[in-house]
Amino acid sequence: MREPPPDRVHHAFAELTESIDPLLRPPGVESVRETVRRRRQRRVGGVAAAAIAVAGVITLVRLPLMEQPAANVAQPPTVGGTAAHPSVLLPPYAPPTSAPTGPATSPPSTTAPEDDAPDESIPPTQPDGAAIPPANCVSEVIAAATGSQLVISAGPVCPNAEIVVSWVTYETQRDGSQTLFATERHTLSAREPRVTTTLRESSVCVGPWYVLRSNPSIPLIIAAGEVAPFPGDSVLASEDGEICLR
């Protein structure tokens, strides 16, 4: 097979680059910074919107319970009862005569239990005398990534609750499947409601990553075309990656 004269090929490449140079319009560093800033804001906004939506759904789900006569919980919780498990405190047919007269006497313990709430009973007051945390305590968790820096925070974390969160990174293969690259698990608590960590990413690719809650199983390989590799309510944040040429 005959090869072209090297000078000719080099010349052609040089001509090609020279021909497009006058047409190049580098958007510039400021554009890079602005794009990154905008994406970060959008991501945070998206997470906040998702948190609000989740809170809204939870409120709607609990609404029927909230409308139950609050007399059921007007009395202090008993030793056997738990604010986190109002169904224990709540007789199915409470006498309406003992209903409270105002919202102040209607503690939110009538709401359904939250997954992250503790299993054991919560005393009426904290050891330090602090007020009883709301029995309908809902721990909202948000995650925000800046490059590979990841911050996961919960607020509030219900007393004694432990919220398992994790991040997982993948490499996207040529066939579109994703191969597990790294993962790490953290536990958020009232004492440590926030964790700052680093997404361990492939050094050669920008792969997809996910921040997860509730400790779902993490597949080693996500098949091409799989659009929901994790239960929807477990994904706190995620970002797509690109095919890894390696």
Partner: peptide, 21 residues
């Protein structure tokens, strides 16, 4: 050319938050 500039700019956008690493 437009596609080329676009992917290069996007690559710089991906690099910026990771620059220090």
């Amino acid at each position: 050319l437009a596609e080329a500039q676009d992917v290069v700019q996007e690559a710089f956008c991906r690099a910026w938050p990771r620059w220090s690493t």
